[in-house]
């Protein structure tokens, strides 16, 4: 079955469409949820969150676009897992997750949609490896040691590239790198 057909089946409320998506994307969604929740919850609770993600896909099948389902599921998985973490009073254990920006920074003057566009631009302007490391850590919540293993580079290099990414992002969002 192709993704288009699976989406159509889901819109027609045929469970085979959802089965197809789960067969294909449970490992991906589970990895994102697990990265975020880790030891904060039992695996059964994490399974509940993964199930929530696919339930959202079922209920919002009209939003799904063939070829972009993976990104949609990833964003929803991330959102739901972060919410779950917040509910139990915990935060993502990320490296220096805070940017200090001046109140008159460019980003503070933008509407929500504009802000998203600016951030997308800022991330996409990073050097490809820096971008990947940046997203692995701050978007997919992978730990530095995990990124080091997956990308086969020393942890110190990962940290250096993360630091560079943070600086570039800050420069861009404050309007100093436009």
């Amino acid at each position: 079955m192709r993704e288009e057909k699976a989406i159509q089946k889901m819109r027609d409320k045929d469970p085979d469409g959802l089965r197809f998506l789960m067969d294909r994307y449970i490992p991906y969604v589970s990895t994102i949820v697990w990265n975020i929740l880790r030891s904060a919850m039992t695996s059964e609770d994490a399974e509940e969150v993964v199930s929530d993600v696919f339930l959202a896909a079922w209920n919002q099948a009209e939003e799904l676009i063939a070829g972009k389902v993976k990104a949609w599921l990833g964003a929803v998985a991330r959102h739901k897992a972060k919410n779950k973490l917040r509910q139990i009073g915990q935060e993502l254990p990320l490296e220096e997750d805070v940017l200090i920006l001046a109140d008159d920074s460019l980003i503070e003057r933008l509407e929500r949609e504009e802000e998203r566009r600016l951030i997308r631009q800022a991330v996409d302007r990073l050097e490809p490896k820096d971008r990947e490391i940046f997203l692995r850590h701050y978007y997919f919540a992978q730990q530095v040691s995990e990124i080091s293993r997956e990308m086969r580079m020393p942890e110190s290099t990962v940290k250096t590239r993360l630091r560079r990414g943070r600086m570039k992002l800050k420069e861009y969002l404050t309007g100093r790198d436009l």
């Binding site: 589970s30 990265n35 399974e47 993502l92 940017l99 920006l101 997203l135 992002l169």
Partner: peptide, 26 residues
């Protein structure tokens, strides 16, 4: 003004990064 990077990225949609499966779920 403090902004969390992980929250700034909330609106992004990313599908070009392969994640190696790592989870303990059924």
């Amino acid at each position: 003004m403090e902004r969390k990077i992980s929250e700034l990225l909330d609106g992004l949609s990313v599908d070009d990064i392969e994640l190696k499966s790592a989870y303990m779920m059924s």
